[in-house]
Design a protein around this nucleic acid. Sequence first.
RNA 1: GGGGAGGUGGCUGAGCGGCCGAAAGCACCCGCCUGCUAAGCGGGUAGGGGGUGUAAAGCUCCCUCGAGGGUUCGAAUCCCUCCCUUCCCGCCA
Length: 419
Amino acid sequence: MLPLELIRKDPDRVRRAAELKGEPAPIDEILKLDKEWREHLHKAETIKEEQNKLSREFAKTRDEALKDRLRQMADVAKQEMAQAEAVKRELDDLLLRVPNLFHESVPIGMTEADNVVVREWGGKPELGFTARTHYDLGEALGIMDFERAARVSGSRFAFLVGDGARLERALAQFMLDVHTREHGYKEVMPPALVNSASLVGTANLPKFGADLYKVEGQDLWLIPTAEVPLTNFHREEILDGHVLPLKYVAYSHCFRSEAGAAGKDTRGFIRLHHFSKVELVKVTTPEQSMEEFEQLLADAETILQRLGLHYQVMLMCTGDMGFAQYKKYDLNVWCPGLDRYLEISSCSVFNDFQAMRANIRYRPAPGAPPKFTHTINGSGVAMRVIDPLLETYQRSDGMVTVPDVLKPYMGGIELIGAR
RNA sequence: GGGGAGGUGGCUGAGCGGCCGAAAGCACCCGCCUGCUAAGCGGGUAGGGGGUGUAAAGCUCCCUCGAGGGUUCGAAUCCCUCCCUUCCCGCCA
């Protein structure tokens, strides 16, 4: 969330940023409630001060008349405080609904048409035959099963079977190895269920609860991404400045209701209710965050490069970047069969927006007052990289070559579909 | 799930209803002393919020001893509910 102080001082800046993001921001209401809150608080505190003084006096004098007066003061103070708290609760809830500002390098725009391709790697592969989609290939090879998944679970679910399942395991292993051994991330196996405070911390709540699966009757939710448990790993902590930046990587399953996506991407291994990915999260100082963000993006790109997949780096415009992000890149990988780019990773920097919500702080130097950290995350990468992978490495006979970097993880298999 | 013990500052750990935002130790910071290192001496260091201040500093007040309620003029301390940790038993991959 944004500091209340900033909204007080420069409401127009916040309002403008929200508008450019296409997000409503209840600024006027916040300013009004802020004033009300402080009035009640001030009144309560003034009475409290007097009451505390007189109460100390009473301890000495035991004057019964004073006791009556004190009782009345306590009542009034309690009332004022209760009102202040009620207003503050309303205020806090509104504050959680104000979108983040954005970095000056973010292009202004409302739709994805205003996003900017900042670079490309590789080129579209020349297959020399008509490319098939990953779901055609996957079903024909018996490594993807959507029909049975629909029966067992419903639409937007998939089975990976045989070498398909093996491929997912190989990819996870490969990515984790690269990030832990070469990029310095610490591997984490996080819980897949988290409480609502954690979801507020990463800004999934209170606004986006409809996108999440909730456990009935309990304060537990299925994670939509490992970003949630990883970022909240240090919630309510004050870290030593010298441990920053902290870098975590987790392979996890992710669950999304896809409430707003009716009819979109219903075919294939694309927009599932349950999928998995490798997630990168960094906790940094404000000074480090933009550089660490670019590095995290590069770390994700490494994976795609080693897999030999053509991709572009897309800088998201204000209207397409989301509520909480300060700056965001998507990595879009070319899928010859689908004949389009598919988002395989999304990397974002949040400034202190999440850290304020999750109350993640650090002490810049011994004895110095704590400051909010910055947080960064990105997929490194999503397991649906399987789609461009199958489509890129397919052969005219319908079999799929295993990319070199995955061979050590595939138990000697070089060709999916052979025999 | 049943029973016991416990949650206090960056950490360890004391705490009588008012003299407690809190002893002591560790750690850290500043200074002094000592020809290195170590030791010694003195001082300092919780978080959040309001007001004042152009701002930093400062001053001042309020709140916070797991969370939320209650009793009381006054609660870390007494009562209730919840959460978490830990031990024993049960169940379990």
